[in-house]
Design a protein around this nucleic acid. Structure first.
Lengths: 141, 141
DNA sequence: GCACAATCATTAGCAATGCTAATTGGAGGC
DNA sequence: GCCTCCAATTAGCATTGCTAATGATTGTGC
């Protein structure tokens, strides 16, 4: 594959990813949470108990910013903060039942919407996309 | 392809897209613009003259929010606002030379970084990814 | 064991971004 | 001409982002 074609794939992959996530983001309205809060909650639910530093790093914001977002999630009872006994400087942030349910209870709205779109594809296309996703996972790592 | 597999593809596509864009976002630092401003400028450069309403819709923010972002871009000389003569209520927003150069001049940092990653793939993988991107474009439309 | 540097999180204070409601200015109907 | 509708902006507020400074705890050197 030539240099120009590689550039073409890169540019199109970039803009298709942006468009996909923008489309799916419309599903977030029903959650009642802002985008940063929902994204943080999602990470907490999936990645289990995490430290504030890890969470901030993963969400690409600074610790003070994330500390406030966690405040808001705690206020709503979606998340708890527990001091880590091994190192009492740090905290374990984990989802409450309510927090997990808010996410999965909605059937994970975004994924659900995406499944609906995938159903419109031919089976061979879904397989080709699945293969592309495997490669994308390596590229995005 | 079964229902469970389709769900699996959807979930993985979703999170791989998030991870990809987060990775590439690190390239934005060099631009000197915040994420919303850079994203708006990018749309303006690519989509030529646009109205405020169209730009707000595309970026999924409300018109007042976008109006202020455009203010900031105008202040930096990256964009101009021209009253539309056909309908003097509306406005044509377009990039200046400087605005276009800021984007393409950096070689489009994100795409450039992505090309570097694609180079590490085997040729057959790049082709499979290219096929996946074609399908993704339809899914994301 | 004790001062001292390093580390994790939070607080303080500011700029930018997001919203809704209200306003301004112009277009179009009648 | 007047009234309604429409595009954009202004006003005012909450949230999100940052850096700098502070608190609290841990680890280190001696």
């Amino acid at each position: 594959m030539g240099e120009g074609q590689t550039r073409d794939v890169a540019a199109r992959l970039h803009s298709a990813s942006i468009r996909l996530l923008r489309t799916l983001r419309r599903e977030d309205d029903g959650s009642g949470l802002s985008a940063p809060r929902l994204s943080a909650l999602s990470y907490i639910v999936v990645e289990g108990p995490v430290s504030l530093a890890e969470l901030a790093e993963a969400e690409q914001v600074r610790p003070p910013t994330m500390s406030r977002i966690v405040d808001a999630l705690v206020d709503r009872g979606l998340v708890t903060r527990v001091v880590e006994p091994r190192d009492r400087r740090s905290v374990r942030i984990m989802a409450t039942q309510e927090g997990s349910q808010l996410l999965v209870g909605g059937g994970e709205r975004r994924v659900h919407a995406l499944i609906g779109r995938l159903h419109k594809l031919a089976d061979s296309e879904r397989r080709a996309l699945a293969r592309g996703v495997e490669i994308l996972e390596r590229v995005a790592r």
